[in-house]
């Protein structure tokens, strides 16, 4: 059995700073890492590999050159090999472009049984990629999966967390599955695994290798035009109370009363 896990490299969002207007984000030079829910997906694939025999886990990612470093974490966690699609166009591609790239890479990887993705990426959290990849490949999708069972014969069962109910969906492979963080707690790879990760195979493809280019992936194809992308205008008081605790609480209650938010 072959499981492909799609992982996205994201910037560390806790470190986003803003220009002096307080609203325009500055993203240059921020550290990158693999997305959170993608690690849940990878952890699950590795557990399946540990349970069943002859499972190959492939980490697939589309992005820019820095991925060669970031992907080592996935290999250290236990992916057998990685496939990277690297192209400057991918840095500015939209969901449709990324999905087209991943779908083409999945076709080139050839026979696989389950493709796992995160429910949403750390940064954009649109959840568009899993659905678009599934649609492009004409495969069923099971999204928002919090419990996953893959049998040796390739039968997949995913429990989806919906608003008011849990829904168990069964499907024969191949199938596209997106997962949430309830699934598991991703392992922290031991140092020895991190050292060995550098020796695992990493294949690098370009968009051209996949028959894709500026016409199909990239900004000129952008389907959605961004008019602005700013932090909401903040207007919090940011008042840290001082004095002894009793005094702080008295002052707090006076302020809350004045604002009419407690009765």
């Amino acid at each position: 059995m072959r499981i492909v896990v799609c992982l996205k490299e994201v910037i560390d969002l806790a470190q986003v700073r803003f220009k002096t207007d307080g609203r325009t984000p500055v993203l240059d030079g921020l550290p990158v890492r693999l997305g959170a829910f993608e690690k849940n997906a990878l952890e699950e694939a590795i557990r399946i590999k540990e349970r069943l025999t002859e499972v190959e886990v492939i980490a697939l990612s589309a992005g820019s050159g820095r991925l060669k470093e970031s992907i080592k974490e996935a290999l250290a966690m236990g992916a057998d090999r990685a496939v990277l699609v690297l192209d400057p166009l991918l840095e500015i591609a939209d969901s449709a472009g990324v999905a087209r790239t991943l779908a083409a890479a999945l076709e080139r990887i050839g026979s696989w049984d389950v493709c796992l993705l995160g429910e949403g990426s750390d940064d954009e959290y649109t959840g568009q990629t899993p659905s678009r990849v599934a649609a492009l490949l004409g495969l069923p999708q099971i999204t928002n999966v919090r419990e996953l069972d893959i049998a040796g014969d390739g039968r997949v069962r995913g429990t989806r967390g919906l608003e008011a109910e849990l829904e168990v969906v069964a499907c024969d492979s191949p199938v596209v599955v997106s997962v949430t963080s309830e699934l598991n707690t991703p392992r922290l790879p031991p140092l020895t695994a991190i050292l060995k990760a550098g020796r695992k195979p990493v294949e690098v493809w370009t968009l051209a290798d996949l028959g894709l280019g500026p016409g199909t992936v990239g900004p000129r194809e952008a389907q959605v035009e961004v008019l602005s992308n700013l932090a909401p205008a903040g207007s919090r008081k940011n008042q840290i109370l001082d004095g002894d605790l009793e005094a702080q609480i008295e002052e707090l209650l006076r302020s809350l009363e004045r604002e009419g938010v407690i009765s």
Binding site: L13, V16, R23, P25, L27, D122, D123, E124, Y125, T126, A222, Q223, V224, E225, V226, L227, S228, N229, L230, A231, P232
Partner: peptide, 16 residues
């Protein structure tokens, strides 16, 4: 919609 993990709101229109 929320973007950059919720740091920003992306205002946009779909042009297809």
């Amino acid at each position: 919609r929320y973007s950059l993990g919720g740091n920003t709101i992306s205002r946009e229109w779909v042009r297809t």
